[in-house]
Amino acid sequence: MAEKITGSTVKAERDPETGLLTGPDGKERCWWHANLGDYLLYHDTEWGWPVDEDRRLFEKICLEGFQSGLSWLTILRKRDAFRAAFANFEVEKLAAFTDADVERCLGDAGIVRHRGKIKSTINNARRAIELRTEFGSLAAYVWSFEPKPENRPARIDFATARTLGKTDESTALSKDLKKRGWSFVGPTTVYAFMQSMGMVNDHLEGCCCRDAIEQARADFTRPVRT
């Protein structure tokens, strides 16, 4: 969510010290949802909650790649169109896409019409199948890069959040994915993915979601290679 930090509209409303924003329900949350209904729902119910389902993980990493250079809100509001265009991010179906499918997607005004990112999504589906064959699941592979607790900041306050564009772990995952033939998976994109899928909990101290997500992560059974 680093791209939201300098947003002028949000900056005018958040607490300048804590980075928290009071919602319409009176609860304090991370600033970046800006009290927009769909964005606030995403903040509360998706961002940071641990995910171990391969389809959802693949969708998240692909959409983070599409987000590069844009706002996440733009991608979120196009997500249903992306799902329709890309076979609901089912990797077996996506891996079978042809050049005709690329052209179809390029003509779809509901998504981000970027040829390189469209072709990357198809390529990455094929690479995801290879990872699943090797590790048993995409989830087992991804979660193997989870940072150790001692490598995480002691507190996720507003000042710390502004430094978390990428980490050693996101760089390592990015490098390994690229070595395996994935594309549009730079370390910043990968860290945003790690935030989204709950590998890290970057909700700010004082955010109403932080403790519940921390408990969910404690209760979560990490997938392992089979």
Rank of each mutant, 00 (worst) to 15 (best):
K4P: 08
I5L: 12
I5M: 04
V10G: 12
E13D: 14
R14H: 04
R14M: 12
D15M: 02
P16D: 09
T18Q: 11
L21V: 09
T22P: 03
T22L: 12
P24M: 11
K27Q: 15
E28Q: 14
E28Y: 07
C30G: 10
G37K: 15
L40P: 07
L41V: 14
Y42T: 08
H43Q: 12
E46F: 10
E46K: 14
G48M: 04
W49T: 13
V51Q: 10
E53P: 04
R55E: 14
R56I: 11
E59A: 09
K60P: 02
I61S: 10
C62P: 09
L63F: 07
G65F: 04
G69M: 11
R77H: 15
R77E: 15
K78Y: 07
D80W: 07
A81K: 14
A81I: 10
F82I: 10
F82W: 09
R83Q: 14
A84Q: 14
A84G: 14
F86R: 03
F86D: 00
F86I: 08
A87R: 14
A87I: 03
F89G: 02
E90R: 12
E90C: 06
V91G: 02
L94R: 03
F97G: 00
D99I: 02
D99H: 07
E103F: 02
C105Y: 05
L106Q: 02
R113Q: 13
H114M: 09
K117W: 02
S120W: 08
T121M: 01
N123K: 05
N124Y: 00
R126A: 03
R127K: 10
E130K: 02
L131C: 06
T133F: 04
E134S: 02
E134R: 11
S137G: 00
L138W: 00
A139C: 06
E146T: 13
K148V: 03
E150I: 05
E150F: 05
P153N: 04
P153H: 04
R155P: 01
D157C: 01
L164A: 03
T167P: 06
T171S: 13
L173C: 00
D176V: 00
L177C: 04
R180G: 07
G181F: 08
W182Q: 06
S183M: 11
V185Y: 01
T189M: 09
V190N: 07
F193G: 03
M197G: 04
M197L: 12
G198K: 05
M199K: 06
M199P: 08
V200A: 11
D202I: 06
D202P: 09
D202L: 02
H203F: 03
C207A: 10
D211E: 15
A212I: 10
E214L: 13
Q215T: 14
Q215N: 09
R217Y: 10
R217V: 05
R222P: 06
T226P: 15
